[in-house]
Nucleic acid binder design. Sequence first.
DNA 1: TTGAAAGCGCTAACAG
DNA 2: CTGTTAGCGCTTTCAA
Lengths: 360, 360
Amino acid sequence: MENPDSPKIAVTSVGRRGHGKATLADVARRAGVTTMTVSRMLREPHRVSDETGERIRQALADTGYSPNKQAGVLASGRSAIVAAIIPNVANSIFAETVQGLSDVLQPAGLELLLASTNYSLEREEEQLRAVMGWAPAALVVTGLRHTDGAMALLRQAQASGTPVIEIWEKDPAEVEFIQIGFNHRSVGQTMAQHLLECGHTDLVYVDSGVEEDFRAHERGEGFAATAERAGATVRIIRAERGEPMAAGRKALLGLDPAQLPHGMAFANDHLAAGAWLQAQEAGIHVPTDLALLGFGDFPIAGQLGGGISTMAAPRYDIGQNAGLKILSDLDLKPLCNGVSNSLKPTLIMRNTTRLPPKSS
Amino acid sequence: MENPDSPKIAVTSVGRRGHGKATLADVARRAGVTTMTVSRMLREPHRVSDETGERIRQALADTGYSPNKQAGVLASGRSAIVAAIIPNVANSIFAETVQGLSDVLQPAGLELLLASTNYSLEREEEQLRAVMGWAPAALVVTGLRHTDGAMALLRQAQASGTPVIEIWEKDPAEVEFIQIGFNHRSVGQTMAQHLLECGHTDLVYVDSGVEEDFRAHERGEGFAATAERAGATVRIIRAERGEPMAAGRKALLGLDPAQLPHGMAFANDHLAAGAWLQAQEAGIHVPTDLALLGFGDFPIAGQLGGGISTMAAPRYDIGQNAGLKILSDLDLKPLCNGVSNSLKPTLIMRNTTRLPPKSS
DNA sequence: TTGAAAGCGCTAACAG
DNA sequence: CTGTTAGCGCTTTCAA
């Protein structure tokens, strides 16, 4: 700047393996200050004088500067990445949770590194290991069950001050990390109780076809335990893996038509919807001949035949609450209108279950 | 190492702001080699002698070393992050695309940084800017339309050798980046043609309620243009924003029952499904009184009333192909069984449209 | 096959 | 309010 004639190597300083992107040093040179001042300008503008600030602003714009975050993290030890590891993005249950997470994280300037495990705990550990290399600011994993290796990684992260959140489950007996979810066993209980109250004594729980969907299995266990304790007959059948609505149809189809149960509960609404459609086509009257109870409160459950009774699951809220918890743990203010809702599933009684008329 | 008596500061080197994690230097010290050798061991093991290798392996295990990726990227200029920016994760269309992307990227060791825009181009630019700071190895964005600022960023990335992929659309007239998708206008054409072939001359297209869903609008434009060219009556109505099945019901409800169109096409299957349910409850016979044609081939379209006719959209394949393209551009071998399918939507005729009996 | 030196782009700590 | 110095943890380049 001082001497336009001096043989500066190049206008855009090209480093050893220059990639043509402007660096802090480029901006600083242009503004006639040191890198520190520019760095400050970027992070705490009030600590820079107005006129210097103006020159820097100009230089920033001229160079089209964009900070190299790797360098920033390396130097400061602080990263703005939140890593989330979930079983499957395509599953709408997790997709909505991710959306909830993303909706609160993004406005706060945190970025989401997403990994999926296809429901395998081994892959969860791998993904966790991979993701840890980025020194994430927080870690979100699904469920309470992990491999020993994964547990070690999570503990290590937590020990070094990284918030670790387990979503979609809750068990006071195993609190080691932050848990944002609910108890699936007791949801299964509620489901059984409802069917019992409706007067049904011959019950079936149609479990998820995904072998590693522990949460669905637990709901089934809670369901069966409660039903048995009440003296009801109860069977657990496993749906086929694959498209859930089709699997729901097949679950009903697989039952002996001569001795149908009185009430069926499902691991999710898609299964229930499939069964409902199948029942309708087979001329089975719901809920008179057969009561159906789903889980999740997916849109379809609200639309079919006046509505399928279900348990509302806080799909989006779990993600949102997890995000909020991360922000508070990181001392960041939430910049979005997130509310901390209850995460307890509630029964929504619609047209596929019916309480008996009150006697007395 | 030479002089064990020299007052080394500490056994576990604690840096200025040590966080207790083992570094390459820790491993090297333990194995009695330099960091370079360990670094080599990690990336090109064959260039390290067997016995040294063994010692290093041991030290690696002892220390529980996990590489700091920020440092690696900073030093090498190579990152293993792929950034994907999509409108909405919760929308199953994009959730499946993300899953497809993730399924091919993860086995190859690439990680996915996910950002969502809530369908706003401005937020897309913001997210893009944020994400660029990580020097991603590749960039995936949705659609062909971007703000000027975003375009500049994308061009800059591409110029510096970063593959840029636009998904879900294709237009030979605007090829600037890699496009993995299809032409929505021509899909709309196909939809109109089908309804026309079914003999319907009074048509309606129910457009997406999401104002910024340009792709749905384009299908509508293609639909309307084709219908008009054929001399049919055609209206485009906009669904309500909100739950799509409910919006589909309302779309039908909003039409004058005395003069229903002959055929309705929808921006997606959820809208179509809602309309189908509404039609059934209102006693409108499908396809005799009213033909219905969806888009997407979502599971529900295959389940309702013997199936809703639809256009199959390659939701998962788009993500998968994008991933495959990234790998090949980065000279990485795909480590998964991905196949490069056709991405052109195809008509699936089911029970909500019917071709007229052949005459002649 | 291994090592030494330098530096990626940025920020913490401390001066001035 | 601004600058100096040092170094984050790794990889590059070049030499041995």
